[in-house]
Design a protein around this nucleic acid. Structure first.
Length: 282
DNA sequence: AAAACAGGCAACCGCTGGCCC
DNA sequence: TGGGCCAGCGGTTGCCTGTTT
């Protein structure tokens, strides 16, 4: 970005007395209270009416990315990461479109995740993050590990008797040449067809009948989740085009619901081991 | 203990398209 | 039809914080 343009914008903001930079608690409160009482409406009007010295754009961004009550914060779950990988393979950098499939997550958050985590992994392999080679690497190594994490988390967090049992499932070894199959989510969700309208043939998604989606990190239990009242509910995701949630059925969970105390932060894990890196660097 | 560095993320920017007059 | 306004989008920047030296 040219400095001259930046300077111009900055001066323009200053000339009309608009604030920039990080939001204060007071500003957050003003904006939140105003929107809760009056709705979103026109953002420039919102900014003025709420008594904020911000432009409408800034208010909109702050509300949508931070203040909105249904925003989910915290690390992305393996399920969400899988979905992002899948959807990005279909749509590329269409962050807002991808965000529609991750309730409570913002396009900004997903974009940041991609740029900081995914592109970092690509750099480790010394390949372009949008290249076929990188997608191959993701399919062969990253996805299986995410699934492994999901299974481990599910196992760790389920069933009280298991929590007392120090043994763990043996780590599954995923061979990149294995015939493990992944079912295209688009075959079950019309809204997820490829951009060109075809059904996907090279997607990352595991079989939906075995993998839970949109697990709340704080309420995982054996492939299901507890609502705030502690009641069990099955996992699902929101399909914007159909304006409905889909659910992962066939769960033979008991009715007792236990909230997991901790959730392993899989986003910090390196997705490749040394062998993987050598294989893709040759 | 302090400086340097790196990573994460909130916030900004310009561009685009839709709507209205 | 064209100009102005606005919302939404994706790209980029820069600050803050944690880690390393």
């Amino acid at each position: 970005m040219e400095d001259s343009m930046k300077t111009k914008s900055f001066k323009e903001s200053e000339e009309v007395g608009l604030r920039r930079g990080p939001w204060t608690l007071e500003e957050d409160t003003l904006l939140t209270n105003y929107i809760l009482h009056n709705g979103e409406g026109r953002w420039n009007l919102v900014a003025k009416s709420a008594g904020l010295k911000r432009n409408g754009k800034s208010c909109r961004l702050r509300w949508l990315n931070y203040l909105k009550p249904d925003i989910r914060r915290g690390n992305l779950t393996p399920q969400e990461q899988l979905l992002i990988l899948e959807l990005h393979s279909k749509w590329g950098n269409r962050w807002s479109k991808i965000a529609q499939y991750l309730p409570g997550r913002t396009d900004n958050e997903i974009k940041n995740y991609w740029r900081t985590r995914v592109q970092k992994q690509a750099r480790q392999l010394n390949i372009e993050s949008n290249s076929d080679k990188f997608f191959d690497a993701v399919r062969s190594f990253w996805v299986p590990r995410l699934i492994e994490k999901m299974e481990q988390n599910s196992f760790t967090n389920c069933c009280p008797q298991n929590n007392n049992n120090k043994s763990r499932l043996p780590p599954q070894s995923y061979d990149s040449t294995s015939t493990q199959t992944y079912t295209d989510i688009s075959s079950q969700n019309p809204g997820l067809s490829n951009i060109d309208g075809s059904s996907s043939s090279s997607t990352f998604m595991p079989d939906l009948t075995t993998v839970p989606y949109f697990i709340d990190p704080n309420t995982i239990i054996d492939g299901s989740m507890c609502n705030q009242e502690g009641n069990y509910q099955e996992l699902g995701g929101y399909i914007p085009e159909m304006e409905e949630y889909y659910y992962m059925g066939n769960s033979d969970i008991g009715t007792e619901c236990h909230v997991a105390e901790a959730y392993e932060d899989v986003t910090q894990d390196p997705m490749w081991n040394v062998d993987d890196i050598w294989q893709f660097r040759e």
